[in-house]
């Protein structure tokens, strides 16, 4: 089953490689991994999307907790949470397609953030599934490149991940 795990860790050189190394050494899946410092610059927050049986997910949680620099871990998928991912899509946009792409972007509540005479860059946020459906809805042959951040997640209400 797919799980989305959030963790807080010390914002120190090498901390990311400890997490990445753990996943590869123990053969756990990583679908995506995002990380950036938090409002407290001494800490980073990471969101990992992974999958595995209940036993494996339990081990992943325990093994993450065991890393010295990991401050706290929460399996967001165990409760209500929100997941968002950002995608940038660079597309060929000429002739009638310019209008069509603008319309699709609107429907998906995206934005065109860069325009040249041939190219649009479209910015889209949402769940991974929403980004997927956008890609399915447009003419794929027009895509020049895409980049996605991977999911970031946060618990709803008073599910708070902190020190």
């Amino acid at each position: 089953m797919r799980h989305i795990i959030s963790l807080l860790m010390e914002n120190e050189a090498g901390a990311l490689s400890r997490v990445a190394g753990l996943f590869s050494a123990r053969g756990y899946n990583i679908e995506s991994l995002t990380v950036a410092p938090t409002e407290d610059p001494t800490m980073s927050r990471m969101t990992i999307v992974t999958s595995g049986s209940d036993e494996i997910i339990e081990q992943i949680n325990k093994q993450l907790n065991k890393l010295i620099e990991v401050v706290s871990v929460m399996d967001l998928s165990e409760g209500d949470h929100i997941e968002r991912e950002l995608m940038l899509v660079k597309m060929q946009a000429v002739g009638a397609m310019r209008e069509e792409l603008a319309r699709m972007t609107d429907i998906f509540r995206g934005r065109i953030i860069d325009v040249t005479d041939k190219v649009y860059i479209i910015e889209l946020t949402g769940s991974g599934a929403k980004l997927d459906s956008f890609l399915q809805a447009i003419d794929r042959s027009l895509i020049l490149e895409t980049v996605r951040t991977g999911a970031s997640g946060i618990g709803r209400g008073d599910r708070v991940l902190k020190l």
Binding site: A13, S17, A25
Partner: peptide
């Protein structure tokens, strides 16, 4: 050193 020993230490520091 930190990289090469990472999988076989409890923790390491540079």
């Amino acid at each position: 050193a930190v990289g090469i020993t990472r999988p076989c230490v409890k923790h390491n520091f540079l």
